[in-house]
Amino acid sequence: MMDRQDIDQLALRLVSLVPPGLAQAHQDLRTNFSDVLAHGLRRLDLVTREEFDVQSQVLARTRAKLDGLEKRIADLETMAAARGS
């Protein structure tokens, strides 16, 4: 997720797009942009990179176990079919 510094940098970039005639409003706009961006990102229910990486590792281990079990079942089915013939 974006940290406060990233949000502030994005808000500063948005403020830089405001016409120069509104220079006195830049600080207010920057604060408002930061608050709106932070609130919006919190509502997105995002996970951190660390949480994502942990879940990716869990998924990879689960996938490996599943592949192994599928192979084992296939081997057992082959053995059962050979005995039944």
Rank of each mutant, 00 (worst) to 15 (best):
M1P: 15
M1H: 05
M2N: 07
R4S: 12
Q5I: 06
Q5F: 07
Q5T: 11
I7H: 10
D8H: 11
D8L: 14
R13C: 08
L14V: 02
L14W: 02
L14R: 00
V15C: 02
V15E: 00
S16R: 07
L17N: 10
V18R: 01
V18Q: 02
P19I: 01
P20F: 03
P20R: 00
G21W: 01
L22Q: 02
L22H: 09
A23Y: 08
Q24V: 13
Q24T: 15
A25V: 02
Q27G: 05
D28Y: 09
D28G: 07
D28L: 09
T31A: 11
N32Y: 11
N32S: 09
N32H: 08
S34L: 01
S34Y: 02
V36A: 11
V36G: 00
A38F: 13
H39M: 03
G40L: 15
G40K: 04
G40M: 07
L41D: 05
L41F: 15
L41A: 09
R42N: 14
R42H: 11
R43T: 13
R43L: 11
D45W: 03
D45V: 01
D45G: 05
L46D: 00
L46H: 01
L46Q: 03
V47A: 06
V47S: 12
T48R: 01
R49W: 08
R49A: 13
E50M: 01
E50I: 01
E51S: 07
F52I: 00
D53H: 10
V54C: 05
V54R: 11
Q55C: 13
Q55S: 14
Q57W: 05
L59Y: 10
L59C: 04
A60R: 03
R61V: 07
R61Q: 03
R61E: 11
A64T: 10
K65P: 02
L66I: 15
L66H: 06
D67E: 14
D67Q: 11
D67N: 06
G68I: 01
E70D: 10
R72L: 14
I73K: 00
I73N: 01
I73L: 04
I73F: 03
A74L: 02
A74F: 04
E77K: 02
E77T: 00
E77V: 00
T78C: 06
T78F: 02
A80L: 14
A80Y: 12
A80K: 03
A80I: 08
A81K: 10
A81W: 11
A81C: 05
A82D: 09
A82K: 13
G84I: 02
S85A: 13
